[in-house]
């Protein structure tokens, strides 16, 4: 764990995410009151109207101001905590449940492997975005019909978690079954170790450092999934339909209840051709946070590969020690090597 924090990539990634979260929390509890909201309409010195929201990006508002007169930058910052929290919670549960079912799969289900593999295959060939869409869209429609628009967030999270579970189970299960083929496992079994003992003494110590890596990888996957869901107009945390605009030209818009990023992307996509910059903010935010999580993953990978697990084969392929008792030798018929070297150059 300490070695992780010595890794530059890991440290950089985690400061990025941590900084984003801290600013986000500061914003909603403290900064919100201080920062002035942008003017909805701009007047020049003679009180003439010169511009009306949305404004393009400027130094004052780095991501611009959206149609409703809100600064996109602070909206993105506000949404950071929701998005990252959703991604983290989903991925942690995915990995925890995936590990449990992976252990069951590797230890006990080897007889039913054809059946389990069929389930995994079904999941593997349906794109995950489609699978989540399949479950989330009826929920969202039902929620809109009742009028509240608030879909139950836990249920949505459960869907996001379960959708990736079979694949993760297969992944972790396979890793465990490969690990169980090691020779020391056979020795351990011969000495009378049961499954539970193997699990406690061998499998879990082997998996533990990897789990963190899985969590980070799954977080990236979840973030990507959230982008796609957002573009398709399915928002985690519920939506509300509001009527904006004046009475003569009522405009139905779907708003995210929180400023969650995927919501921001999906809702501003309609405006892509009108005000290009509105979609810019959440896109940059997503890219930066995915980049940060990728950095963390790479850092963990580096630390993991530094640790030397000497396998049986590596131990025995090292035949250097057999030569120690041999005498140094020399060729009898020697030619001058330097002559060849100079000619080849």
């Amino acid at each position: 764990m300490i070695r992780l924090f010595c890794n530059r990539l890991f440290l950089f990634g985690i400061t990025l995410i941590g900084g984003l979260l801290v600013i986000s929390f500061l914003y909603s509890y403290y900064l919100k009151e201080i920062i002035p909201t942008p003017e909805f309409m701009l007047y020049d010195d003679n009180n003439r109207l010169i511009d009306k929201a949305p404004y393009p990006p400027s130094w004052q508002h780095p991501f611009g101001v959206d149609r409703y007169g809100e600064d996109v930058f602070w909206k993105v910052v506000d949404g950071a905590k929701y998005t990252i929290a959703i991604a983290l919670v989903v991925s942690i549960f995915r990995v925890l449940l995936g590990t449990l079912s992976g252990i069951v799969y590797a230890f006990y289900l080897s007889r039913f492997r054809t059946l389990v593999d069929a389930v995994i295959r079904a999941y593997r060939f349906i794109p995950i975005i489609f699978l989540t869409l399949l479950f989330l869209v009826p929920l969202q429609l039902a929620a809109l019909e009742t009028g509240s628009g608030k879909t139950s967030m836990p249920l949505q999270m459960v869907i996001l978690i379960v959708a990736a579970l079979p694949i993760l189970t297969g992944l972790i299960g396979n890793e465990i079954s490969v690990f169980l083929k090691n020779e020391f496992i056979d020795c351990s079994r011969l000495l009378g170790a049961g499954n539970l003992h193997l699990l406690r003494k061998h499998v879990i110590p082997y998996l533990r450092p990897r789990l963190l890596l899985y969590v980070v990888q799954q977080t990236v996957q979840t973030l990507l999934l959230l982008v796609h869901l957002g573009v398709l107009g399915v928002l985690v945390g519920g939506i509300k339909e509001v009527v904006k605009g004046d009475i003569f030209k009522p405009e139905k818009a779907v708003l995210s209840l929180s400023n969650e990023w995927s919501g921001l992307i999906g809702l501003s996509y309609r405006e892509l051709m009108l005000d290009q910059w509105i979609v810019l903010g959440p896109c940059i935010a997503f890219s930066v946070s995915i980049f940060a999580f990728n950095l963390i993953a790479k850092g963990i990978e580096q630390v993991l590969s530094e640790r030397k697990y000497v396998t049986f084969h590596e131990l025995h392929s090292n035949t250097q020690s057999d030569w120690n008792d041999k005498q140094p030798f020399d060729f009898i018929h020697k030619k001058d090597v330097r002559q060849y070297e100079s000619s080849s150059l």
Binding site: A118, F125, L131, L134, F135
Partner: peptide, 22 residues
């Protein structure tokens, strides 16, 4: 063929579950 059949069954189950979940 067995694998295809089983996978199709699983897909059908999933779809049926998804459309009736609310």
């Amino acid at each position: 063929f067995v694998e295809i059949f089983m996978t199709v069954c699983i897909i059908s189950l999933l779809v049926a579950l998804a459309t009736s979940i609310p």
